[in-house]
């Protein structure tokens, strides 16, 4: 659950005598994350500029082949004049689109839920929150598998719907875009609920009361008063759903079949599948990371602007 790390400011306390120890205290963190996270990512960027050896493996030769494969096509056999390669861009576009739709689903269901919980009496609030977050702590793989089991052609959902006569034949739910979106929605819903909850909990209902005294209806209050104030929470929730969703692998892989190829599947295919092109896989990962950084920059600017209100 990201973004909730407390306080980027000065922290409590005036040092309490720990000043001198800051170096050694932070050293393990810097070492671990520096060596095993930052360094590998840099290496990955470098790797994307290597050449792929025939039939797998790499040669230590600088080349833009991986990026070329992504953006440019030279015909089926490489002997036609270069033109834009739309396939991978389409995959990215499709992933972004899927992520957007999943985020919207999460928003539509998540906002009312967060509002409802935040407006319960303080004693029960914790319980509701707890109920919402438990499923998140269950292994994502198991949750995705459970969803697949539920919606497949001869699964419980279809059986139930058929037995009460709502439908005649099974709904073709697996191996569709809808299944993938459902999977994404299912994976990341709590990420949307929690930040919105935090924002709504801090909302001062005096504003609503003042507006009501001026004869505003509750929906107008929601739209004109509440939403602008709660906006940072909503934006945080959207970001927290959107970012994992574009790089998701399990939902498209288990629920999508061949039709819904997303970025995660594309990358995985390069490393584990039958295509075996590591530099290309690295290049796609770099492009994905750039996308994510862009999204984060937009978020940062949005919250900076929101803070000025």
């Amino acid at each position: 659950m990201a973004g909730g790390a407390p306080d980027a400011g000065g922290g409590t306390g005036s040092g309490s005598g720990y000043r001198g120890l800051i170096g050694p205290l932070l050293l393990p963190t810097w070492l671990m994350i520096g060596i095993f996270m930052v360094l590998p990512v840099c290496l990955m960027v470098a790797y994307s500029f290597l050449t792929k050896e025939f039939r797998g493996g790499v040669e230590w030769e600088f080349s833009l082949a991986a990026y070329d494969q992504f953006f440019v096509t030279r015909g089926l056999f490489g002997d036609e004049p270069p033109s834009i390669e739309w396939t991978y861009i389409t995959i990215f576009w499709r992933s972004v689109w899927q992520a957007v739709i999943a985020t919207l689903f999460c928003l539509i269901v998540g906002f009312p839920t967060a509002w409802f919980i935040a407006t319960r009496p303080a004693a029960v609030r914790g319980v509701w929150l707890f109920l919402i977050t438990i499923p998140y702590w269950v292994n994502l793989l198991i949750r995705t598998v459970s969803l697949k089991f539920l919606i497949r052609d001869n699964g419980p959902l279809n059986e139930a719907l058929m037995s009460i006569g709502l439908i005649d034949g099974p709904l073709p739910l697996v191996n569709t875009n809808l299944a993938v979106q459902l999977g994404l929605f299912y994976s990341y819903l709590p990420f949307m609920v929690l930040p919105i909850y935090a924002a709504v909990e801090r909302y001062n209902f005096a504003y609503s009361e003042a507006a009501a005294d001026l004869y505003a209806s509750r929906w107008v209050i929601l739209r004109e008063i509440v939403l602008p104030i709660v906006r940072p929470g909503i934006v945080a929730g959207c970001i927290l759903v959107f970012i994992p969703a574009i790089g998701a692998f399990l939902a498209p892989d288990l629920l999508g079949g061949a039709k819904t190829f997303m970025i995660g599947s594309l990358i995985e295919e390069q490393f584990k599948g039958s295509l075996g092109n590591w530099p290309f896989g690295a290049a796609v990962s770099v492009i994905l990371m750039t996308l994510v950084l862009l999204a984060l920059l937009i978020y940062a600017r949005q919250s900076a602007r929101g803070g000025q209100r």
Partner: peptide, 9 residues
Amino acid sequence: VPEIVTAVA
């Protein structure tokens, strides 16, 4: 960082 990027790196 998206998990798959971490995995690849």
